[in-house]
Design a protein around this nucleic acid. Structure first.
Lengths: 159, 159
DNA sequence: TGGTTAAAGGTCAAAAAAGGTCAGTGGTGA
DNA sequence: TCACCACTGACCTTTTTTGACCTTTAACCA
């Protein structure tokens, strides 16, 4: 991965992995200095790579002593599962959001790598878009995604 | 075969043969420079020589740090797998046929039980039928099924 | 205490850095 | 001659990177 955004992402995920409690606190300016880039590049990484559907929460504070806080969200609790179904999924899901979600589920060991690959290929715009417009494709995807989640919770009970 | 497309094809297959994991990553512009040709010539080679039918998968990313990724799929052109994929091409698959197909794959240990359950749930008439008529639903299902087969042969490589 | 200031972080648009598409041209073999 | 394959160039879309300008807040000082 040659680009800056990917390297910053990787760096953050590394220290997040090592951190206690699944969260880290750091300063935007400091991070920008480490990678010698524009501070707004950090925002770019945060908004594209640490989104809710990827399972992250980003908080911040401005002013003196300001900071960024990145939190990794898990799905362990039942409330989170419902959050996934309602808030995260909604009635429409783009290909990008579907992929992000599937990767997240993968990381949380709710899906296997293979399952994620298979579902991603089924949800691809290239496939669905051949039959449904931009209005309806994301709706079908949302329906399918919900069905998958229901399937998972059932399959889990059986094992 | 002295022509450019053939030489580019041969070059890519050589480095693909030497590569670990059966896949290579490179940049279109870089490759075009090596062969001093138009960048779109690379696309021509990829779409004519590295098709799924020939056992290859091409992924890409645009923008800064963009790249092409060529993956050699894990099946040969004479395999059952390949035959099934071609059968699916342009065919229509009912919910019933999809279920049968998935169960077969399951019995042949190509899919796990769980994978089959998940895929069955997304292929259900109840879901697809909400968006597509009896004419189009089976066509979408066929495309998706083919994509699943591609997904399988890719997933097998990555593990 | 209250106002000022410096130290954060946020936003947005423009530029840059890739790759994608498509129509059209030209050669070549049946 | 006609159909097909190789190739190019003009134009498009997506993603990343930067910089100018804005907002918020803690700290300091009168």
């Amino acid at each position: 991965m040659g680009n800056l955004a990917d390297r910053i992402e990787a760096y953050l995920k590394t220290i997040l992995g090592e951190a206690e409690g699944g969260s880290i606190i750091l300063q935007r300016g400091f991070l920008a200095k480490i990678f010698s880039c524009a501070p707004s590049q950090i925002n770019y990484v945060l908004t594209t790579r640490f989104t809710v559907e990827k399972g992250y929460l980003v908080e911040s504070r401005r002013g003196g002593g300001g900071f960024l806080r990145i939190v990794r969200l898990g799905f362990d609790e039942e409330s989170n599962f419902h959050r996934l179904m309602n808030e995260l999924l909604g009635e429409e899901v783009s290909q990008l959001r579907a992929n992000n979600l599937l990767e997240n589920l993968c990381e949380e060991d709710i899906l296997t790598e293979r399952e994620a690959i298979l579902l991603k290929s089924v949800f691809a715009d290239k496939i669905i878009g051949e039959f449904l417009s931009n209005t309806y494709a994301p709706r079908l995807r949302a329906k399918m995604m919900k069905e998958v989640l229901i399937g998972i919770s059932r399959a889990d009970l059986e094992s």
